[in-house]
Nucleic acid binder design. Structure first.
Lengths: 206, 206
DNA sequence: CTTTGTGAAGCTCTTCACAGCT
DNA sequence: AGCTGTGAAGAGCTTCACAAAG
C-alpha cells in the first residue's frame, strides 16, 4: 500500500480518537473530525480517501466502521509484542503503563544493563540483562522496541535489537537513530520537544 | 524571526547533539552533521543559513559557536520554569528526570487532582492540587506546562494552564489540543507513535 | 581545492473548488 | 440540500548545482 506519511500519521491519530468517540455517537462528519484531529475537513476527506473499500454517507462516517477500517488497513488489528530497553525512571514508567494491552500491544520483556536491577525489580513483565536482548527478541517474537537508555547506550542497544530481528523502534534517547535495513525508527526526545516549544513561544517561526 | 518549522525543529535537535559533540571535537562539517542529525548536508547548510550572523569556515562549523548561535537565536539561553500536571507513573517519572536543569529548565511545580497524593508524595518539586494551577502558574512565572493526565482531564487541565498565562504546552495525553491564543502546543502520544511504527513496519507507505 | 551559501528546479503535501452521491 | 470524493491549483520544503569564500 502507498500513502503519504503525514496522512498515515493523521489517520493513526484519528483512530485513537475514534475509539473514544464511538462510545458517544454513531456518526461523525469531516468537519467535526477535523476539529478533533487538529486538521482541516479537506485533509480529513483526502486522508480517508486513501483507505480503500471505505465510503462515507450522507451523515458522514460511521465511527466504528472508520476506526475498524483504519485498523485493518494499517495492520493494527493483530496484537504485537514489544519490549523496553533501559529500566530507569522513564523505562519503568513505560513498563507499568496499563494502556498498552488495551491498545493492542503486549510488553513481553524489559532489559537493563544493571543485572542487580533486573534481578531485584518486581514487575509483571519478565526482565533480562541487556546482553540477552537479541536472543530474547528473537525467541519471544518481539516486533517493537522502546529505547529508554542514555545517549551513550542508544546505538549499542539499537544494534542488539536489530540483531534480534526487531521491526520497529521508538527511541527516547537524545541520540538520533537512523533506519537500518527494514527497521523503522521514531525518535522522541523530551528535551527536544521542550526546546521547540520554548522557541515557538518566544516568537520564532513563520 | 521567520523560519520554516521543520528547519527550526532540526536546528533544535542539532543543538542537543552539538552539546555532546563539542566535548569531543572542535569543528564539524555539514556532512558529518547530516549523519548525526539524520538529514542531508544540503539541508544542514540551508538550516544553518537561517541563523543570521553565523558563517562556516573552511573546516566547517565550530561546534560550540554553532551551538551558542542556535541557543541565542531561539531564545534557549534563558532558564525557563516548567510544571507537570498529572502525577501518575509518567508524570512522576518526568518530575524526577534529572536532565531538565542541565538543559536550561527548572521544574517549579507539580499538580494532581488527588489531594492525598499531593500531600503525601515526596519530591524535590513543590506539589499542589489541580485547582491551584492557574494561580500558581501566574504566581511562580511558569512558562511551560507538561500534561501527563488522562484523556478526559486534558482539556480542563489545559484551560487552567491557559488561564494562568502559560506560554507552551507539551501534551502527553491522547487528546489533541489545539493552539489557543499564543499558547504553543506539541501533542505526543506513546500509543500514537506505536501505531505509526506498527503500520510502517507492516509494509505501509510510499 | 575543499567546504559553505544560495537561487532555481523539483517534489510532496495541502487547499481549493466543484462534480457526484445519498 | 448537504456531505463526500477528487482532479487541479497552490504552497512549502527539499534537493540540486554552481558560485563564492576561505
Amino acid at each position: 500500500m502507498i500513502i503519504p506519511q503525514p496522512a498515515l500519521e493523521r489517520l493513526c491519530r484519528m483512530r485513537i480518537l475514534l475509539e473514544e468517540l464511538k462510545e458517544k455517537q454513531i456518526t461523525v462528519d469531516s468537519q467535526e473530525l477535523a476539529g478533533l484531529c487538529g486538521s482541516s475537513p479537506d485533509t480529513v476527506r483526502k486522508d480517508i480517501g486513501y483507505l480503500k473499500n471505505f465510503r462515507g454517507g450522507k451523515q458522514g462516517y460511521v465511527c466504528s466502521e472508520l476506526s475498524d477500517c483504519i485498523k485493518t488497513t494499517f495492520n493494527l488489528a493483530k496484537r504485537r509484542k514489544a519490549c523496553v530497553v533501559g529500566l530507569g525512571k522513564l523505562g519503568s514508567a513505560i513498563l507499568e503503563y496499563p494502556g498498552f494491552f488495551p491498545a493492542g500491544y503486549e510488553l513481553a520483556a524489559g532489559f537493563d544493563s544493571d543485572i542487580n536491577l533486573v534481578e531485584l525489580k518486581k514487575s509483571g513483565v519478565p526482565l533480562f540483562a541487556s546482553y540477552e536482548i537479541s536472543e530474547k527478541v528473537r525467541q519471544l517474537g518481539i516486533e517493537l522496541g522502546i529505547l529508554a537508555v542514555p545517549f551513550e547506550a542508544a546505538q549499542k542497544s539499537f544494534d542488539r535489537l536489530a540483531e534480534g530481528g526487531i521491526k520497529g523502534v521508538l527511541n527516547f534517547s537524545s541520540a538520533i537513530l537512523k533506519m537500518a535495513g527494514n527497521i523503522y525508527v521514531r525518535n522522541i526526545s523530551f528535551l527536544h520537544e521542550f526546546d521547540i516549544i520554548s522557541a515557538l513561544s518566544a516568537g520564532i517561526e513563520i
